[in-house]
Amino acid sequence: MNTKADSSETRPEPSRRDILYIGTGATAAVAGGGMVWPLIAQMNPDASTRALASTEVDLAAVPEGQIITVKWRGKPVFIRHRTSDEIKAEEGVELSSLPDPQPDNARVKKPEWLVVVGVCTHLGCIPTGKEGEFNGWFCPCHGSTYDVSGRIRSGPAPSNLEVPDYAFLSDTKIKIG
């Protein structure tokens, strides 16, 4: 690649030995990385945990105004049968007044059913229902309040309650996950 003319005299041509050193070192580094990988990866959720993917819930038994809690992936999921007053109030909320602006209709599939992961987005506590200034949820740990759409309204939590992947299998049955 380079001729004698442009290679500096202080830098001798790499020898066979240099190539061997670098090649050996690089191979050892790759092998070392390969050995460390399982040691790190074993800490991630195992196959049996990953397999607990979905839960089906029958909504027929939930009267208007009630919240039920179901377990999904070890976490609680809140299902709230909202009243028409609540739906009207949430749809009318000024988006500019929200810390994490999101319209109500982007957070529900059917307005009367709100499905959210019941884990406070601050540090993972479980908020209590129908409490707090906005009558949605109140987190007892550090005082975050959520509205009836599960949106963060005040306190240290950075974002709205997460809406999990779910689908209506029929009018009264959903599948979460």
Partner: peptide, 27 residues
């Protein structure tokens, strides 16, 4: 729960680090 969730505050990698620490999606 609270202490492992401290790591979820990190941008981008936070939630994966928390899952890695817990070995599950929750404690």
């Amino acid at each position: 729960t609270v202490i492992t969730n401290l790591f979820s505050a990190l941008p981008v990698v936070g939630p994966s680090i928390t899952t890695w620490l817990l070995g599950d999606y929750a404690v």
